[in-house]
Design a protein around this nucleic acid. Structure first.
Lengths: 108, 108
DNA sequence: ATTATATATTGACGGTTGTCGATGAAGTCA
DNA sequence: TGACTTCATCGACAACCGTCAATATATAAT
């Protein structure tokens, strides 16, 4: 997931260059992770603390626990968040570099 | 479409605050417009010039003309691009503020 | 061991999306 | 007018997505 640091720029930069097919696929996949209101809200929640317990998220959102788990998996596989288990609980946190890279894709 | 200028920040900023439901819906809808490889590539293409004729896009991508037209509509309704007709041709261009606003949602 | 709790996975269902061919709308040029 | 070009819209279809209930996995506590 290190490759997130070198995401190309889509636009709006002097050095914007044509994307290769793998590059545009990769970028679209990462944007797709943010293309759902619940996942946007989860990112927003994680941003408010170093890490957040899944149990807090299932309380916050009026969605079933499997649905929250599903959205966390999508964000995890996109490299935007990471998790660690401590005891029975799972804690999620942002991967700031990944989000900064995605941000960088939208301009300088 | 002016409201794009005041998109809230998702994360990674000191002043990141909880999103309202309309805000997260709005943000997700805009990210969804970028959640497709072809649309990412279109944005990338538009970034290389002041405006681009649809006829150039249908040549560039190996997709049917209706499919390109569909993607342009999605981007237009998301406020990321705008178009004008001159004669038989339609020219599309980026809405830089909209993309900058989306970029701003990912951090300061 | 058993029981309880937290999270992940599976399977299924309805709604959405990307794609195309066919058609329509609007302009251009003989 | 009529033939031609460019782009948008419509209708259809397969694939994908968000959601839930049920189940599985793993840890903790008694």
């Amino acid at each position: 997931m290190k490759s997130i640091a070198v995401l190309p720029t889509i636009c709006c930069s002097p050095q914007t260059e044509p994307l290769t097919v793998p590059e545009r696929d990769e970028l679209a996949a990462r944007f797709k992770a943010l293309a759902d209101p619940t996942r946007v809200a989860i990112i927003n929640s994680l941003s408010a603390a170093d890490e957040v317990c899944v149990c807090n998220l299932t309380e916050t959102f009026e969605l079933s626990q499997p649905t929250i788990s599903h959205h966390l998996k999508v964000l995890r596989e996109a490299g935007l968040v990471e998790s660690s288990r401590r005891g029975t609980w799972a804690y999620y946190r942002l991967v700031p570099d990944a989000i900064a890279a995605l941000r960088g894709a939208l301009g300088p």
